[in-house]
Structures are given as structure tokens and as C-alpha cells.
Simulated scan of single mutants.
Amino acid sequence: MQNITAEELKQRMDNGEALNIVDVREPHEHAEFNIGGILIPLGDVRAMQIDEIEDLKDKEVIVYCKSGNRSGQAAMLLETMGFSNVVNLQGGMMRWREVIK
């Protein structure tokens, strides 16, 4: 599993890159604040209910959560499911909100 910082991700977003971003928080967290991407809560990842991203196994997939812990777990699970390029947002949305104004 690779990691990306909030600053690096924001720069890539600002550059207009087409990114595959997955939010593994709960729906109420996603509704409160998110940076885009597909909502697939960690519980759904654990249950292998990931149809929305099944076609991304050979592409970069960036996962995020509140602090980076759940997304780290999700990244490891996705790797065991055959995803070859999973990247975890370090510090999650807490870090994002600290550094991205």
C-alpha cells in the first residue's frame, strides 16, 4: 500500500487529473464533508460489495476516511482482492481540513 499526502492529492486534483477516489467512511460522514469520489463504507469493502469499482483493479485507487485508519484497512483489503495500485490518504479528512484551505 502506498500513501499520499493531502497536499499531493490536492495538487493532482487542481491539475485536473482523472482520479479514482473512494470514501470508506459512513454515509453521514460523507454527507457532512467529502472531497468527491465514490462512497463505499469500510463494512461494504469487508463484505466485498465493491461492484462500483470492480473495473479499477488495474488502475490507481485512492482511498480516504476520517483519520487514515479505516482507509488503511480498506487499502489492504482491496489489495487482497486483486487491486494492484491502492493509495491511502495519510491523515484522512482530519489532515485535509488542517492543511487545505
Rank of each mutant, 00 (worst) to 15 (best):
G72F: 00
G82W: 08
L77W: 03
V24N: 04
V87I: 11
E54Q: 13
T80E: 13
K66S: 07
G68F: 10
V22K: 01
A31K: 13
L39T: 10
Q11R: 13
E32M: 07
Y64P: 00
I62E: 02
G91P: 05
E8T: 14
A47T: 07
S67Y: 05
F83A: 01
G68W: 00
R97D: 04
M13I: 15
D58G: 09
R12K: 15
E52K: 13
L19Y: 12
A75E: 02
F33V: 11
I62R: 03
V24M: 04
D23P: 02
V87Q: 06
V61R: 01
Y64L: 06
Q90F: 06
N69E: 13
L89A: 09
A18E: 11
G36D: 08
Q73L: 11
D58L: 09
E54L: 14
A18Y: 08
I50V: 13
A47M: 09
N85E: 00
L89T: 04
D14I: 15
A74V: 03
G68V: 07
E98K: 12
L42H: 05
I40Y: 02
E8A: 15
L39C: 05
M93P: 08
G43N: 05
K57D: 05
G91T: 04
Q90A: 14
V61T: 03
T80K: 11
G68K: 01
N34S: 09
Q90D: 12
E32Q: 13
E29M: 05
D55N: 10
V63E: 02
N3Y: 13
K57C: 09
E8R: 07
V86E: 07
V63H: 00
V99Q: 11
E7S: 14
M94T: 08
L78C: 01
M1T: 11
M94H: 13
D14T: 15
E32D: 06
L39D: 06
H28F: 14
D23C: 05
E52Q: 14
D58N: 14
P41M: 08
M48V: 08
E79T: 14
L39G: 08
D14P: 10
A75V: 00
G36W: 10
D44Y: 04
D44Q: 06
N20W: 03
H30G: 04
Q90V: 12
N15R: 14
D14L: 15
K10M: 11
E7M: 15
N69H: 07
V22N: 06
N20H: 12
Q73E: 10
P41E: 12
R70P: 00
I38N: 04
F83D: 03
K57R: 12
A18K: 13
R46M: 11
N15H: 13
G43Y: 08
E54N: 08
M94L: 12
S67A: 15
E79A: 11
F33W: 03
V61N: 04
K101S: 11
D55V: 09
R12Q: 14
G36K: 10
C65N: 06
I62Q: 01
M76N: 15
A74S: 07
V22F: 00
D14R: 13
P27N: 12
V99P: 06
R25N: 07
G37D: 12
A75L: 04
D55Q: 10
P41K: 04
A74T: 01
E79L: 09
